[in-house]
C-alpha cells in the first residue's frame, strides 16, 4: 500500500515523513472513530479502519544524509484507512 500525500492543513494523524512512501500492512487494529474529525468537535464517523503499516527504513530515508541504520531495520506506524491507496506496480 502507499500512503497518500496530502497537504496537511488542520489536524492530521499521518506524519509528513511517511506520506508518499510504500509499505506493507502488518496488522489490522480495527475500526476507530476518525481523530481528524473528532478534533473539530465532530463525531468521528464513519469509523476508519486503523492499520499497522510496515516500511523499510531504507525506503523512507533514501535521500537523507547517511545515517547508520541497517538494511533490515523497519518502521511501523498506525495509519487510518483514508490515508492508504494501492501502491503502483513495481
Amino acid at each position: 500500500m502507499r500512503i497518500r500525500v496530502a497537504t496537511p492543513s488542520g489536524h492530521y494523524r499521518t506524519p509528513t515523513y511517511i506520506q508518499g512512501k510504500v509499505g506493507v500492512i502488518e496488522a489490522v487494529h480495527g475500526a476507530f472513530r476518525n481523530p481528524e474529525t473528532l478534533a473539530y468537535g465532530g463525531d468521528g464517523r464513519p469509523k476508519q479502519t486503523l492499520y499497522l503499516v510496515r516500511f523499510d527504513q531504507t525506503h523512507i530515508w533514501a535521500h537523507a544524509e547517511p545515517v547508520p541504520f541497517c538494511q533490515n531495520d523497519r518502521l511501523l506506524i498506525d495509519i487510518y484507512e483514508h490515508w492508504l491507496e494501492p501502491a503502483p506496480e513495481e
Binding site: 488542520g10 489536524h11 481523530p35 473528532l38 478534533a39 473539530y40 468537535g41 468521528g44
Partner: peptide, 11 residues
C-alpha cells in the same frame, strides 16, 4: 474536551 481537540489546539 476530547483529547483529539486538545492535540488540534496545541498544534
Amino acid at each position: 474536551i476530547r483529547v483529539d481537540e486538545l492535540r488540534r489546539a496545541i498544534e
